[in-house]
Write a protein that binds this DNA or RNA. Structure first.
Lengths: 338, 338
DNA sequence: TTGAAAGCGCTAACAT
DNA sequence: ATGTTAGCGCTTTCAA
């Protein structure tokens, strides 16, 4: 079932069929009707590969989502899509798992779909010029930036929060309320990624409050998985019965912390406070509501798209933007009673 | 940057380059090395469209996920992917939003990627032979079936739970504990989809317990959105202060119900019980843990893939499988005290 | 307004 | 083991 079949069936040439399918103006109503009828009758659907291959260029912007299933990205994806369509571009989205290489995936998608530009939703923090070279179209990192890499700032854009500063703010929120035994739940203190940055912010806040760092208050877990986080909290609670607050570097971990504390017989926030970063939908529905620094997901998306398009249209240069989170005060943080 | 450039750069023919790129055995180490070097140097990435277009046929199975961001699908997607790869096929996944047409999306993907078969994760329950005609490859509906449609059972496969029966089971779980004022939270009682089926099961359980149906205990909400569900529960609680149990047709709604009840000063399960269907990861972390009928997500995925492949390889025919949920007893259901 | 034909970049016979 | 070449299905000049 190809365009040729449709042409034969309707008794016109393939080019006429193509014109009808692509809404070209100069086709007679008669031909148009016959072609559409044939399409209907034959259940014809154009082959995208062939289409993309022959089209000079598309107006497609690629979106690579790394960490499929991460609820943090869901609203961002929606906002990104809306912005892209509104600007008159089309979107090609591709989800990969957290252990895949977003640059390779992006490069492949870029060529496959003749993309004009790309938005990376989640990725490594340590790109090198060599690594990104495969991606020979403008791109913007959304929700992260190249903190540990060696990329020339002019060769890409980014829109993210300042992880170190926001982590500092979260922990500061705890120290301001008198907490001193503050645990942190994260991936790894030296993951060259988000956990490392947020750990730095944690340390700075402690330092400023003259609280010595204490390794036994640091719980590293392999994965941003709620069960694993739950177990991490359990270990933490066994080890340090005296802790009064927990900073979870992501809401998923915060939610798990709430549960682990409850199951261990600790009241939140009376016995132990919990704060995290992200502002996931579900953290609005925990009991108590999780106190979290909500990432400006909509703005993250809007800025990423508009900046990319500005670069694509030659109206602007690459740049880097830090957005601020907004504190969403739930009921999971209280003053320190000990 | 095409295969031709790589060929010229490395001083071999395009077919040699193609061979290297596709891991064909009969290429000399010398040529292989030269080609790989050129690929590296030129940052060459093959154009997928061209590749797909020229390849006689792929071994790709398509997966259409309808309702991007629905946490219910996340683990299923993972399991599906694992199964597909394990069976020696490749996967093409495409996520669409809940208001898009999965058949059109599937048909497009099928032709674009020359798919051998397709797995539909979520979709309408009322297909007609005409509507599915565009999809001229074997397909299996995963997590739903064609309850309201007119499809010939031999033309497709499905793997799902029996929505009516499982809803009956959930409500029966409540009536068995003495509950009689049981509310239901759903999309619409006549949505020709999942809500309608589960509503039927709800009615049957009530009938069996000689409880008259009461419209004021039915709360219809537009969307499977937690905030909307929360508001729905609020309306319900205002309207019917006397209700003692809630059946939410999805875990997301159940989580919201827990919160709404808590905020309204009702203890769960002492004052009001909550049960739902799905078994989402997050419902393990609510307080109390949500009692839910857990869908066998892994089995759903495994069966969908294996049945599809059996059909593809001519080793089996289309068929329809109902799997059973497993009761996950949390702490959200108790005996009726009133 | 329509049709013929030249690619788009790649793979897979078919030669050599 | 390597090169030549004919398509894959479509869009898009270029003629008519």
């Amino acid at each position: 079932m190809t365009i040729k079949d449709v042409a034969e069936y309707s008794g016109v040439s393939v080019s006429s069929v193509s014109r009808v399918l692509n809404d070209h103006p100069d086709v007679s109503d008669q031909v148009r009707a016959r072609v559409l009828e044939a399409v209907q009758a034959l259940h014809y659907v154009p082959n995208n590969s062939a289409r993309d291959l022959s089209r000079a260029q598309t107006d497609a912007i690629g979106v690579i989502v790394r960490g499929a299933g991460n609820p943090f990205f869901t609203p961002i994806i929606h906002a990104v899509e809306k912005e892209i369509l509104q600007a008159g571009y089309s979107m090609e989205i591709h989800q990969i798992s957290a252990d895949e290489d977003e640059l390779a995936a992006g490069a492949s998608l870029a060529r496959a779909k003749r993309l004009k530009g790309m938005i990376l939703l989640g990725g490594e923090f340590d790109y090198t010029p060599d690594k990104v070279a495969v991606l020979n179209i403008p791109f913007v990192c959304c929700s992260y930036t190249n903190s540990f890499g060696t990329l020339d700032k002019n060769t890409y854009s980014s829109v993210s929060i300042d992880d170190e500063a926001e982590a500092y703010r979260a922990v500061r929120y705890l120290t301001d309320r008198g907490h001193r035994k503050i645990a942190i739940l994260l991936g790894a203190v030296d993951d060259r990624s988000i956990s490392e940055l947020r750990y730095k912010g944690y340390c700075r806040a402690l330092q400023e409050a003259a609280i010595p760092e204490d390794p036994s208050l640091v719980e590293e877990i392999d994965y941003y998985d709620m069960h694993v986080a739950y177990e991490g909290i359990q270990r933490l609670l066994e080890r340090r019965q005296d802790l009064t607050a927990i900073f979870a570097v992501a809401d998923t971990m915060g939610v798990a912390a709430l549960k682990a504390l409850h199951d261990a017989g600790r009241q939140v926030p009376e016995d132990c406070s919990v704060i995290s970063i992200d502002g996931l939908p579900m953290s609005n529905f925990t009991i108590p509501t999780l106190t979290t620094l909500e990432q400006p997901k909509d703005e993250l998306a809007v800025e990423a798209v508009s900046r990319l398009i500005r670069v694509l249209e030659g109206k602007g240069k690459n740049g880097h933007l830090y957005l601020q989170t907004s504190l969403r005060e739930g009921g999971s943080v209280g003053p320190c009673h000990r």
